[in-house]
Design a protein around this nucleic acid. Structure first.
Lengths: 320, 320
DNA sequence: GCCAATCAGGACAAGTTTCGCCCTCATTAG
DNA sequence: CTAATGAGGGCGAAACTTGTCCTGATTGGC
């Protein structure tokens, strides 16, 4: 029961649980000489586990990150947490290598004590997740490499080359500066700057066909709100109508009311001009309708028509 | 380098990676006698790790679940998966003991090789999650025990006693048969049968004050759609305005246009009635305006007024 | 500057364990 | 019945572990 192996593992466990522990303390806990503890440390190091030491009073051993993973000694509760996390990854289509998730799950569940397994199973059975917008198709199988690459590009501000199949099925390729990644209602999106279109764009990661890092760096606007941009884009679906609207208010109030991602705002005499391009005009119409200052549409005519239709419809609804 | 401890861990690793492995095979891999392998197995068993064996041709050792967790030996990819899973738990307010999540994260991240840690950090930094409906308050801190207890009750069809603080702040207590648990837009819900109200009810788990299993069992309707029930209930937030609208179309087309999250649809003669409660009427107005079939508001008057205002505004915008 | 606490590690002897090799037996699929 | 597997006793040589002494190195605090 008190084999050297056991004591060695205990050292490892103690170092994993407390971030650091001194030699004498370890010796006391293992009921063993300090010299032996030092030998254990040596053995661990020989096994490739990087135990580092600080000398002097208050000095202690601590586990550093190394090239390889040491055996991990988790408590029961921690194992349950790990299992549920892995199940969550599976459920949410997290961008993680499927084989790794299955492997980790298999290893963990196989040795999980009976009562803990019951707990996990109960949760698994009882819980339903709502994402993947009720009724919408499930996302295409996601190549987790894409998100890993994207996140690395976001992190290092590195441009990427991308091939993409759009909603309508047409393929395109472009250079793209990813500003961030968003998980929304079961789908993974990325928002950033598209160099082909020279504009901000949102893409669905499961529609990407190829992705490569390019050896070029970009600057990211400091205050870019990725989540907001994606949510807006998801509502819009990009298109190509030039919209130009006069806002009868100050630039400050206009900014308050119209988020920067909606389009551009420009002062013009006493007014403010709002511009953007879109094919889905009704979202724009809705945002503009919410303004508490006068607004006049300059173009396109389609937006005017839409507003008139909406007015007629609203009156019909209200008066019926 | 080839200490007995090392070999013992290798046995453990092999048994964790492959679900079973015969003595001769292990002996070959460890470059050790079969007799020694048997001794290793004995040692593992002495350490409390339940290694079981099948005899006869094709027989092998296999790791069973035991009373305690053995040291776990994961691959790099698996460790990344575990870390991301744990981060997901934290982000999504999964019903798991916070201390356990933090402990497991600390243990794992502390020893994660540098390059893998970078990967994890990049993902963590780059990804934004959208739940907790843009702008709505974050859920109250969740006592994970409640969901564990609930899930166990769901699993065993066991009634619970519950104290609850409703949306409006009033406390109540009731006996409740939980049919399931749903995660929706950042909040945890449970739906089931409330014995006090003698009706189906949905509760937010973070609003529960106390929860106890009762020694009584219930039958659960076989075809109960927990997700659907919760989504519908969420649409009907009590205390807000009751909205009732006639849609001049078939139930099928109405369903296409109005997601179940919005509210309920009910056939009425040739029409469809849409109902929900809401405090934010303009969102509803917008959705209804987008319909390509006639719509008439029955109540509330505030929605009619809002529509008239919108009409006036739209005409102003279009006509300017 | 000195002290005390910590880590680092050599040397050695006594004690303990491990390992391979022998053996016999139990179990089980074919 | 046979062959392949696990279970395990016994033995002796070899290897390892441990405690006890050392001597140093490093470092924080007084």
């Amino acid at each position: 029961m008190y084999s050297p192996t056991m004591r060695l593992l205990t050292v490892l466990e103690l170092l994993q649980s407390y971030e650091e522990m001194s030699g004498p303390e370890l010796a006391r806990r293992l009921e063993v000489d300090v010299r032996t503890v030092r030998r254990y440390i040596l053995t661990l190091q020989d096994m490739g586990i990087p135990v580092e030491a600080e000398r002097g009073p208050g000095g202690a051993y601590r586990l550093e990150r190394g090239r390889r993973l040491p055996p991990l000694l988790y408590s029961d509760a921690e194992a349950v947490a790990i299992t549920l996390g892995l199940l969550g990854i599976r459920e949410f289509h997290f961008p993680v290598d499927v084989a790794a998730v299955e492997g980790a799950l298999a290893k963990t569940e196989r040795v999980l004590p009976e009562n803990l397994l019951h707990q996990v199973r109960s949760l698994q059975e009882a819980i339903t997740f709502n994402f993947s917008r009720y009724g919408s198709p499930p996302p295409a199988i996601l190549d987790s490499d894409f998100i890993v690459t994207l996140s690395s590009a976001v992190h290092q501000r590195q441009r990427v080359y991308m091939r993409y199949r759009s909603f309508s099925g047409e393929e395109s390729q472009r250079d793209y500066d990813p500003y961030g990644i968003v998980f929304n209602e079961g789908y993974w999106y990325t928002a950033g700057f598209c160099h082909t279109r020279q504009d901000l764009r949102t893409f669905r990661v499961d529609r990407m066909l190829a992705l490569e890092l390019i050896d070029e760096h970009f600057e990211r606007p400091a205050d870019f709100d990725v989540l907001n941009h994606v949510l807006t884009s998801v509502a819009f679906i990009p298109g190509a109508q030039a919209v130009e609207v006069v806002l009868k208010t100050s630039i400050e109030r206009a900014r308050e009311h119209i988020p920067p991602i909606m389009g551009t705002l420009e002062e013009s005499g006493e007014d403010v001009i709002f511009r953007r391009t879109a094919s889905q005009l009704d979202w724009i119409a809705h945002v503009l309708l919410g303004a508490d200052f006068p607004v006049f549409v300059k173009q396109p005519d389609e937006l005017r028509d839409l507003l008139r239709e909406m007015a007629a419809k609203a009156l019909q609804m209200a008066g019926g």
